[in-house]
């Protein structure tokens, strides 16, 4: 089975490990992620905040390429890319004038055919169908993740239907439980970590992260799990600074969901490039004899 795949800039750069892991985990379940040809940057938060036209037009080119691929579904791991693509598809459907203006500049026209899915949506369907359980050889009992969704997976600048609760989503919990992990209940799962502000307004971002880290630690989580490369890098690379500034002693590894799945499916830390984490990802896994 093939699904169209949009990695986005981050998965080609600082979060390359997430790209590698996604392909591995899906391949194990018999799904080939087919990267769409010659895709471009979606514009991310920056276009959304500063240029209404580019915010729709940049993702539209990718949507045109995806539509032309002939595949029925496209999976987008990065929450920011996912959000921008889904908003663009909706705006183009709502505004035929804008759609014509943008399509006039494109070689492959956006038609609005392809179904846009977050990586979580696809994984939840694989959890429900039993395909994840079937491929898992290790039980992750003892892993107590704070499932961290961040802001862009459930909330959008316009009305978008998603197949999960907006305020208390459960998709990641469903996937984690299938492989034996014990996700904790907590209050900050959809709070923003301020990834787009960490460079230009560092103090704000550190404050937002401190609340997230504080609650996860207080609720007894022993790691974070996320699907968003922006959240992962932010919570991982800046956690030491957050902890020092706000007097939080404990550090929690920040796993991609593909890392927990990869461990369950028997991939080695080397194959998954776990050494590219900032907060030690090995200690917990070793302690639980998972690696």
């Amino acid at each position: 089975m093939e699904i169209a795949y949009y990695p986005g800039c981050s998965l080609h750069a600082s979060s390359e490990l997430y790209d590698i892991q996604s392909r591995m985990v899906f391949r194990r379940m018999g799904v080939e992620l087919k990267e769409i040809e010659d895709w471009n940057c979606c514009g991310a938060t920056s276009a959304g905040k500063t240029d209404d036209f580019l915010a729709i037009a940049l993702p539209a080119r990718n949507l045109g390429i995806a539509d032309a691929s002939g595949l029925a579904e496209i999976v987008i791991p990065c929450s920011s890319c996912y959000s921008r693509m889904i908003v663009s598809q909706k705006k183009l459907a709502d505004d035929p004038g804008l759609k014509n203006t943008i399509n006039a500049e494109l070689i492959k026209k956006a038609e609005g055919k392809i179904k846009i899915s977050s990586i979580l949506e696809v994984l939840v369907s694989k959890a429900n169908s039993g395909e994840i359980a079937e491929k898992s050889i290790k039980n992750l009992e003892g892993i107590k993740p704070a499932c961290y969704y961040g802001c862009l997976l459930t909330r959008f600048p316009c009305d978008v239907e998603i197949p999960d609760s907006v305020e208390n989503p459960q998709g990641m919990e469903i996937v984690c439980k299938i492989i034996g992990a014990q996700p904790i209940d907590w209050s900050y799962k959809t709070d923003c970590c301020g990834a787009s502000a960490v460079i230009n307004d560092t103090d704000t971002s550190l404050l937002l992260m401190s609340r997230i880290l504080h609650d996860a630690v207080a609720r007894g989580a022993n790691c974070f799990v996320t699907t968003c490369p922006m959240c992962q890098l932010n919570m991982d690379a800046y956690q030491e600074q957050v902890g020092e500034k706000y007097g939080i002693q404990k550090r929690l590894p920040v796993y991609f969901i593909t890392e927990l799945l990869g461990i369950a499916m028997g991939f080695s830390p080397n194959e998954m490039q776990l050494d590219r984490h900032f907060i030690d990802p090995f200690g917990l896994l070793t302690e639980l004899k998972l690696i």
Binding site: C9, H12, A13, S14, W39, N40, C41, G43, A44, T45, S46, A47, K49, T50, D51, L54, L58, A197, I199, N200, D201
Partner: peptide
């Protein structure tokens, strides 16, 4: 904040993808 988002979009225009 303005400089950050300008730089991002400028970078995206140079190569079609953002090189960090």
């Amino acid at each position: 904040v303005a400089a950050f988002h300008n730089a991002f979009l400028t970078s995206a225009s140079h190569f079609g993808r953002v090189n960090e």
